[in-house]
Amino acid sequence: MTTMTRTRNLLGGLILAAATVGTWWAWLGWDTGYTVNPETGATSGPYAPWQVAGCVLTLTLLAAVGGWWLSPWLVAPVMTAAFTLTWATHAASVDETGLWAVGAVLVLVGMAAGTTVVSVGARLIRRRRTRKPAS
């Protein structure tokens, strides 16, 4: 591995980690309140479905761009670790039940699977596009 490749991977990984943490903050980090339905007494939250959908779509875009420019084997662990650690740190600080650990495992598995599939897919598309002969 050349010095240029190492530098690109290090810089790309740091930018990807920062963008992943920024995604959590932009979509989920600011909302800590729960909603209680006055008729049923059911509690929901802290996130609304639109927040989770926006977060997932943004993370999907990051994984695709990351997989296009960087190795998927760098993208998946960086994004998974950055998002899971950020989510778990916040969840542990506000959860009184201890169930944040279960959520953290689910976030870890989901992030690992999702970022791997999307970044590998982006890399395969890039390879296919560069192999096509010019007409």
Rank of each mutant, 00 (worst) to 15 (best):
residue 33 G to E: 11
residue 33 G to L: 13
residue 34 Y to L: 10
residue 34 Y to I: 04
residue 34 Y to V: 11
residue 35 T to S: 10
residue 35 T to H: 08
residue 36 V to N: 08
residue 36 V to I: 15
residue 37 N to V: 02
residue 37 N to H: 03
residue 37 N to Q: 01
residue 37 N to F: 01
residue 38 P to R: 03
residue 39 E to P: 00
residue 39 E to F: 00
residue 40 T to V: 04
residue 40 T to W: 03
residue 40 T to Q: 04
residue 41 G to M: 05
residue 41 G to E: 01
residue 41 G to S: 05
residue 42 A to N: 11
residue 42 A to E: 06
residue 42 A to S: 07
residue 42 A to P: 00
residue 42 A to R: 08
residue 42 A to K: 06
residue 43 T to M: 15
residue 43 T to H: 08
residue 43 T to A: 15
residue 43 T to F: 14
residue 44 S to G: 13
residue 44 S to D: 13
residue 45 G to M: 10
residue 46 P to L: 12
residue 46 P to T: 12
residue 47 Y to S: 12
residue 48 A to Q: 13
residue 49 P to F: 08
residue 50 W to D: 06
residue 50 W to I: 01
residue 50 W to E: 05
residue 50 W to Y: 00
residue 52 V to D: 10
residue 53 A to H: 09
residue 53 A to C: 08
residue 53 A to P: 07
residue 54 G to T: 04
residue 54 G to K: 00
residue 55 C to M: 10
residue 55 C to V: 05
residue 56 V to E: 03
residue 57 L to Q: 03
residue 58 T to G: 00
residue 59 L to H: 02
residue 59 L to I: 05
residue 61 L to T: 10
residue 61 L to N: 00
residue 61 L to E: 00
residue 62 L to T: 02
residue 62 L to C: 02
residue 62 L to N: 01
residue 63 A to P: 12
residue 63 A to M: 07
residue 64 A to F: 12
residue 64 A to L: 14
residue 64 A to Y: 04
residue 65 V to R: 03
residue 65 V to M: 07
residue 66 G to M: 04
residue 66 G to F: 05
residue 66 G to E: 02
residue 67 G to P: 09
residue 67 G to A: 12
residue 69 W to G: 12
residue 69 W to M: 09
residue 69 W to N: 06
residue 69 W to S: 07
residue 69 W to D: 03
residue 69 W to Q: 08
residue 69 W to Y: 14
residue 70 L to F: 07
residue 70 L to T: 04
residue 70 L to G: 03
